[in-house]
Amino acid sequence: MAAAASVPVPRGPAAESPVSKATPVSKAVRRDWAVGYTMVAPVVLGALAFVVLPLGMVVWYSLHEWNVLAGTFTFAGTANYERLLADPGLADSLLASLWFSIGLVVLNITLALLLAVLLDQKLPGTTTFRTFFFSPVVVSLVAWTIVWSFLLQADGGINGFLSTLGLEGPNWLRHETTAMLSVIVVQVFKNVGLNMILFLAALQGVPVELQEAARLDGAGAWRRFRSITLPMISPTILLVSIITIVGSLEVFAQIDVLTGGGPGNSTTVLVYYLYQQAFRFNEFGYASAIAVLLFVIVLVLTLLQWQSRKRWVFHEV
């Protein structure tokens, strides 16, 4: 490699500090920029071709009345968006999505953190338990959901187990609250392993010295957890919650297998609604408008989360 002794190695987060336009730019710096552009070129071009372009097409579709079966594609202006505003089904599904996402994120993160903390105790058998908790992540979603649909039936395995304890379980998938809860819990068990691993890794990255110092200061374990561990792993919590929220908006197969969106419309979340409109009702234009809405929602949520990080995320790297 040619000697380029003067490659500038910036200190600190480069991307955060924009280049001042006034500074004259040396040849070496320009060469460094070129390397930068080359390195990001694949993902940037990929994002343009496989994210921005398809999104643009979806926006374009959303301005049309598109019946796939008939092959009609006519410009409809903002008609689909006006329909969004007046659609009671959409309001229901937004509400369902809201409950689903909140429930999923809270349960998922709580359980993931609890499991990670338990597994961080260096107990015998930790390796095995770790594999247990992680195993659903690799199991096919369909197989996973089907087993649970058996277990959650009125006379299924869970209520059978409860009756041996003298309890009468509800008809899980047939009541609005328990149906939503069931879908959430099944999803949490499926994916919590991945988040658990992330937390576990984060916990192991917390410097022992800090803990020791706090302990010597007489801080109790819970206090140490709250004042040291949580802040230290808060960046991971942010990352995990972003991934989980975004993931929660993509839930589809689980709802299809477990509840079909019911009872009533109580588990018809936004993506399920979108899917119905597009692939069952052949309303591609309208489905595209919902897709645009979905994208905007995810975007706003993520931005809010990202913005709020400064308040609760302890250190930004």
Binding site: V43, A47, P54, L55, M57, L274, F284, A291
Partner: peptide, 18 residues
């Protein structure tokens, strides 16, 4: 930011254009 946008797009949204 442009690249990050990809994180926010459910695959159901882009399957038809793709």
């Amino acid at each position: 930011v442009l690249v990050l946008a990809g994180l926010l797009v459910p695959s159901e949204v882009t399957i038809v254009p793709l």
